[in-house]
Amino acid sequence: MEFGILGPLLVRDDAGRSRAVPAPKQRVLLATLLLRRNQVCSPALLAERLWDGSPPRGETAALHNAVLRLRRCLVQAGDRIETCAGGYRLVVAPDEFDVHRFTELRAEGTAALRDRGYERALVLLDAALSVWRGEALLDVPSEALHREESGRLADERLCALEARVEAELQLGRRSVVPELQELTAAHPGRERFWAQLMTALTREDRPAEALSAYGRVQRLLDEQLGVHPGPELRELHHRILRADRPFPAPLAARVPAQRIPRAALRQPRELVR
């Protein structure tokens, strides 16, 4: 089986066939159970998610019926929803859930980046980002789930993007400036993307554009948040002004050819790769 919430809700059986979960309440129920997979979810928690804090009269029977309908949707996997003392539990192996796969690949990629294994980091982080199919919980209509989970997952994805761009900067095999221009436009409060853009521009002997980028983020942070750029951006700005060379050549330029903050002010409707 395969389950996914990094995009529209996904259920795929052992034969690779997609299983539709058409009812909104069933999607909310499945997403809640997935996010707490292999743990017992209390009826109170499930009711709060299903009805966004305003459960109907007879909520116990309504919840029981919702679980029964979801089991029928999952067909042969319906028995994975177990009735336990204290609630319900969905049994899911780690590699069956897209959030787990993303989290593991991102952790391995970030560790490789710390160890300066830039090529390995790039492969792992690309694989982690490829798990995403769209905005998390895209078709799951629950204000509580979006409030508590969507932002956290989106931030983890942006951290993975920052790490992948860093790996690409270190490898220096292509210009990452166009991608970073898109990322800073889509996530203007993400200071790390601005620092990476300034670094990439300076390495390409475009210091005037790097200084212009600093001016843009400085104005944006002042106007929208009333704060100044953080220490990393300020230090980078000073180094560019002093015409220092704090930007060592990327790996591809140093090695023979034989041989990769702050929460976003807003989230785009479409994912930027």
Rank of each mutant, 00 (worst) to 15 (best):
H187W: 15
P22I: 02
L125W: 09
Y118T: 07
S150G: 06
H146I: 01
D98L: 04
A127F: 04
S42V: 00
A213D: 10
G117L: 14
D52F: 02
V67T: 05
D139W: 15
P250C: 00
S212W: 06
L124Q: 14
E48F: 00
T60Y: 08
L233W: 06
R147C: 09
G117F: 08
P188Q: 03
A264T: 10
E182S: 11
P24V: 01
R259K: 08
G117E: 15
L74S: 03
T202E: 08
A163K: 04
T83Y: 04
I260R: 12
L105F: 05
C159K: 15
V227R: 15
G4Q: 11
L236N: 11
A249H: 02
V11L: 05
A257L: 13
P56Q: 06
L74R: 07
S175M: 07
L6M: 13
A107C: 05
D13W: 01
A31S: 15
E223M: 13
A252Q: 00
V28R: 02
R157L: 12
R262I: 02
Q39K: 13
G172E: 05
T83G: 08
A186C: 08
A31M: 06
V67M: 06
E135P: 10
R72A: 11
F193W: 06
G78A: 10
V272Y: 01
H237K: 14
D244W: 12
A185T: 15
P55G: 09
A243C: 08
R152N: 10
D115T: 10
V123M: 07
R37S: 10
L10C: 10
V255R: 07
P56K: 02
L33C: 05
A200H: 04
F97W: 06
R206K: 12
V67N: 03
D13Q: 07
D205H: 13
L137C: 09
T184M: 10
L63T: 11
E2S: 09
A136W: 09
L68H: 15
R157G: 07
V123K: 09
A93Y: 04
A93K: 09
P246E: 01
L137D: 09
D205K: 13
I81F: 11
P250D: 01
A15N: 12
M198N: 02
E232D: 13
L183F: 09
R89H: 04
P256Q: 04
L183M: 07
L113G: 03
L251F: 01
G58I: 01
L251M: 02
G151M: 07
A61S: 14
A31I: 02
R242Q: 15
P43I: 00
H238E: 15
L74C: 02
R190L: 04
G230T: 05
A31N: 05
V131G: 09
L105A: 11
T199G: 03
L221K: 13
D79T: 14
L201T: 01
P250H: 00
T110L: 13
Q170P: 00
A253S: 08
S54Y: 01
L6P: 04
L113A: 06
V21N: 05
V40W: 04
G58K: 05
F247H: 09
A20L: 11
E162Q: 15
P248I: 00
R206Q: 14
P56H: 04
E59F: 01
C73G: 02
L34M: 09
P268L: 11
R269K: 12
G4R: 12
L113K: 07
D13P: 09
H238A: 15
